[in-house]
């Protein structure tokens, strides 16, 4: 809660403040190594992009960071505390501060949109049903879907589902928001609007944002820090501001990736 709980008007961006740190991480499925020796850190308030070619393990990295998959080796630290070394109850505390928006929205189809947003609130707060309903309405209004509380996910469009996924992710006012391919399957305008929404929420909530994407327009317009994963070398080959990487990287693969092979 700390980012959001900063005293009103306090400047959080003056002091570099490491929010998430990934140290010497190796990800593997059985004996098959997906990526190894990943080491990078994410500052509080960053919009951090995880990029790389298809199948390089971007989503897998996200799964390791949010606690869906245990690393084969290495650590994921939140404010200096090791996530995977913590016991399951402490991990739940960490996870309360995560918000995650999934590639396919992952809305629970048997629940209405309001119920989808209400579930994390019911799990983690002592609020009564009326207060939870009101918060759910507010979150839906924030993503531009006021009045759709009693719809089921099957009754709304793909772009709307993405936005509800985002509303669910911010239900608990998380410190850190994870996005897996937020613009997958969206038209360029919807995708741009979603980017604006993410940016706006970052500005007003003060949360750290981690995005898996290979949408170049998004990478350059909202990202201020990144890591590039190479599928062949099975490790990260660059990190830093994506615009800076595009202009200065000497690695031909990264250069090709960030210029769509056109330059």
């Amino acid at each position: 809660m700390s980012a959001l709980s900063e005293p009103a008007g306090a400047a959080t961006d003056n002091v570099p403040d490491v929010h998430v740190e990934v140290r010497d991480l190796t990800m593997a499925y059985g004996s098959f190594v997906v990526q190894q020796d990943l080491t990078f850190s994410i500052q509080r308030g960053d919009i951090f992009i995880i990029m790389g070619d298809s199948g390089c393990g971007k989503s897998t990295l996200l799964r390791h960071m949010v606690g869906l998959k245990q690393p084969a080796k290495g650590q994921v630290l939140y404010e200096g505390r090791d996530f995977w070394a913590a016991d399951p109850l402490q991990r739940k505390d960490f996870m309360r501060n995560f918000g995650m928006s999934y590639q396919g929205s992952a809305l629970w189809s048997s629940m209405t949109l309001a119920e989808n947003i209400a579930l994390p609130l019911q799990e983690y707060t002592d609020l009564n049903a009326a207060d939870i309903r009101e918060l759910a309405q507010l979150k839906l209004a924030l993503v531009g879907l006021a009045g759709f509380e009693d719809y089921y996910p099957s009754e709304i469009s793909g772009g709307m589902k993405k936005r509800v996924g985002l509303a669910r992710a911010i239900a608990l006012d998380p410190d850190i928001l994870y996005f897996d391919e937020p613009s997958a399957g969206l038209d360029p305008i919807s995708s741009r609007l979603l980017d604006d929404l993410i940016l706006e929420l970052r500005e007003s909530l003060g949360a750290t944002i981690v995005i898996v994407t290979h949408e170049l327009a998004s990478i350059f317009s909202i990202g201020n820090n990144s890591v590039f994963l190479d599928a062949e070398k099975k490790t990260m080959t660059a990190s830093g501001d994506p615009r800076h990487l595009r202009d200065t990287s000497t690695d031909p693969k990264i250069h090709r990736f960030l210029t769509r092979g056109e330059a």
């Binding site: 009103a8 209004a141 924030l142 006021a146 009045g147 759709f148 929404l197």
Partner: peptide
């Protein structure tokens, strides 16, 4: 109000409720 709060309030009211959407 704090800056972030003003922006969020603006965001929440930016898209008016669609007429006839509510059940």
């Amino acid at each position: 109000l704090p800056d972030g709060v003003q922006r969020l309030l603006h965001l929440a009211s930016a898209v008016p409720e669609r007429k006839g959407a509510r059940r």
